[in-house]
Design a protein around this nucleic acid. Structure first.
Lengths: 345, 345
DNA sequence: CTGAAAGCGCTTACAG
DNA sequence: CTGAAAGCGCTTACAG
C-alpha cells in the first residue's frame, strides 16, 4: 500500500506537509494542498491508522464487552453504542463474553493490548483482577447495565424496581400468589437486584418468596429450561414464573411446552427485557422493557466525556412494565371486540 | 503504561532480549528469561499491540462486515465467526452496515485503515468501488452468505434451492396455489436467488409467480410489514406469504395481526432463516434453516487460509426446511394426541 | 545467547 | 508556509 512517503514524493513536498494537509492543519499553502490531495487521489492513499495511533497515543476506538451477543437486549445495546460512538468519531470493538468470566477476561485483555481509548463493560461477574486493576489504573471505563460496586466508575443502567413493583401488582390483581423467579448469577448486579426487587414488591402484598421458588439461572436459555423443569416438578409448583431475562424466558417456554402445558392456562410467565418477538409468541409475553437505545447512547457519552477530560455522569433510567397476555386474562381488554383476540376459556 | 524499555531496564537486559522472551524465541538464556518474566510480572507489563502491528505489518485481526446485527441470523453468524477466529488466534472487529451501502462503505474503509489482516463480508449491495478495489488489490477477502459475482473472492454460503423446493411441495400439498414472496434487495444475491428458487420450484407445479406477488423488501422488519399490507389489500390476496428473511417475517406477522387476521387460517406464512423464537410464535413458523454456525466457521477458515498463504476454498452448504404450523394443518401429526396441539378448526 | 541499530508510518515541536 | 528530525513501542537481521 502507498505510504505517506509515496504521497510526499508524488506531490513534491515533505511528509510533514502531507500530514498537515491530511489533518487539516491551517498553515498549508493552497498550492501544496492541491498537489497533495491530487497525489492522494491518484495513489489511492489511505492513512495507516496503526501508525497514527502509535504516534498520537490514541486509537479513537472504544471497547465494548458484553455478556452475550445472542441476547437481543445486548445486540440492541451494541447497536446503539456503535451508532453514538460513530457520531462522535469513534469506532467500537465488541467482545462477547458469553456469560463466561474467562472469556470476559480474554476480551478485556485483548482490548487493553490494542490500546482502546476507553472501555464499556457489562460485567459477567464481580470483576477479575485484570479489570479491577485497569479501572484503578485510570483506564477510562463505564459500566452499562450491570456494574461492579466499590469502583470509581460511572454506571449507566435502568432501574427496574418500580416496573417490578408494577408487575407484582399485576400478578396479584390476577389472583396469583405463588410467584417464582428464574434469577441471573448472584455475582452480577442485575442477577441479584431483580430478585431483591421482586422479593420486596411481593413483601408489600404479604407474599413470601421461598427459596424453592428462586431458581438459579445464568441468563442463558438452557438454564431457564432447567430451572422451569424444576419448578414444574415441585409438589406445589408456582403459578407464575418470572424470568430475569428474555433468553431464560425462552427456555422456560421450551420447558412448559415440553411438558405439554400451556401459558398462561397452566402457568403464567413474565420476563425482564422486552423484545419484538414477545408480541408474537403464544401467548404474547408480559415483559419489563428497558430504554435500551438510550442506555447505549448515554453510556457512550459518559465514556467519551471521561476520555476527553470532561466529568462523566452516571445515569439511571426507568424501565417500564408492558402487559400482554402471558400472565392471564388481559386486564385492559380493548373497547370493541377485536378478531385478533382468542376466545379464552 | 510500562513499555518494553521499562521492562528491559528493570530486568537489566536489552529490549531485544525482552522481545525475544515475549515471543518465545529459542535463543534466550534461562537466567535472562526468568529476570524478564519477573520484571513483566512486577510492572504489570502488557505489550502494545499497536506498535507490534506497525512493526510486523500484521494485526491478527479480521474484519467482519455484516448487513444487520439486529438480525438474529447475522448475530449468530458473527458469534461463530468470532469463536473460530479466536481459536485460530485472531480477533474480529464487526462492522454493522444496517443494510445501508453508505454504512457498509464506512466500515470497510475504517477496517482497511486499521489494516486488518482480512475481510469477511456479506455485501449489502453490488459492491462499492472501494470494496471492489480492495478485492482486486489483493486484500484477503471472503464473502459469507451474500456475495458479489465476477470477483475472485471465495464464497461461503448456503444453497437454499432444494429447501425452497421442499417448501413449495409442502405448500402445494396443503392446497395452496397463490404464493407470494417478500424479496430482499435485488442488488444482493440472497435477494434475487431466493425469488428465483421460489419461482422455479413453483414452475415445477405449473404455478406462475405474478409480479403482484413479488414484494420488494429490504430484509428489515418494516419492509415486511409494508409489503404484506400491500398483499392483503390486493383484490385477490395470496394464500401464502414467504418472507425471504426472519425480520421481514416478523413485519409480516405484525401486518397480519394489525388487520385482525390470523396465521395460517387467513393467510399462511413461511420464512427463510430459522430462529429459536419461531418455535414459540403463534403459530410456530415454518422456516428454512441455514447451518449458520458452520458457515461462520468455514468462512473464517477460508479467510485465514488465504491470509496465511494456503489456497482458500469456497464452500456451499445445504439449507433445510423445518415444517411447523404456519402454513396450515400439520402434515406430520404426532402418533399420540398431545395436549400441546391446539384443536384446529 | 546478547545488544546496538534500523525501521514500520505516522505527527509535531522546532527552526527557518 | 515548509522541512528535517525526533520519537511513539515494538521486532529482527546483523555482528559479536
Amino acid at each position: 500500500m502507498a505510504s505517506i512517503k509515496d504521497v510526499a514524493a508524488a506531490a513534491g513536498v515533505s511528509v510533514a506537509t502531507v500530514s498537515r494537509v491530511l489533518n487539516d492543519h491551517p498553515s498549508v499553502s493552497p498550492d501544496a494542498r492541491t498537489r497533495v490531495l491530487a497525489a492522494v487521489e491518484r495513489l489511492g492513499y489511505r492513512p495507516n491508522a496503526v501508525a497514527r495511533s502509535l504516534r498520537t497515543d490514541q486509537t479513537r476506538t472504544l471497547g465494548l464487552v458484553i455478556s452475550d451477543v445472542l441476547n437481543p437486549y445486548f445486540t440492541e445495546l451494541a447497536r446503539s453504542v456503535e451508532e453514538e460512538a460513530r457520531a462522535l468519531g469513534y469506532s467500537v470493538i465488541i467482545g462477547n463474553a458469553d456469560e463466561r468470566p474467562d472469556l470476559q477476561d480474554h476480551h478485556v485483555r485483548t482490548l487493553l493490548d490494542r490500546r482502546i481509548d476507553g472501555l464499556l463493560v457489562s460485567p459477567t461477574d464481580g470483576g477479575s483482577p485484570l479489570m479491577l486493576d485497569a479501572a484503578r489504573a485510570g483506564t477510562p471505563m463505564v459500566f452499562v447495565d450491570r456494574w461492579i460496586p466499590g469502583l470509581d466508575v460511572p454506571v449507566v443502567r435502568a432501574d427496574g424496581r418500580s416496573a417490578v413493583r408494577d408487575l407484582v401488582a399485576h400478578l396479584h390483581g390476577l389472583g396469583h400468589r405463588r410467584l417464582a423467579i428464574i434469577a441471573g448469577p448472584a455475582a452480577t448486579t442485575t442477577g441479584s437486584e431483580r430478585v431483591e426487587a421482586f422479593r420486596e414488591a411481593m413483601a408489600e402484598y404479604g407474599i413470601p418468596l421461598p427459596d424453592a421458588y428462586i431458581g438459579q439461572g445464568d441468563f442463558q436459555a438452557e438454564s431457564g429450561r432447567r430451572v422451569t423443569e424444576g419448578f414444574l416438578g415441585l409438589d406445589e409448583p408456582p403459578e407464575v414464573v418470572f424470568a430475569a431475562d428474555n433468553l431464560m424466558a425462552l427456555g422456560a417456554l421450551d420447558a412448559v411446552r415440553a411438558r405439554g402445558l400451556r401459558v398462561p392456562h397452566d402457568i403464567a410467565l413474565a420476563a425482564f427485557d422486552d423484545i419484538p418477538w414477545f408480541v408474537h409468541t403464544d401467548p404474547p409475553i408480559t415483559a419489563i422493557a428497558q430504554p435500551t437505545g438510550e442506555l447505549g447512547r448515554a453510556a457512550v457519552r459518559a465514556l467519551v466525556d471521561r476520555i476527553e477530560g470532561r466529568p462523566p455522569r452516571s445515569v439511571t433510567l426507568a424501565a417500564r412494565l408492558v402487559v400482554r397476555r402471558s400472565c392471564g386474562e388481559d386486564p385492559n381488554p380493548p373497547q370493541s371486540p377485536s378478531p385478533v383476540r382468542r376466545s379464552t376459556p
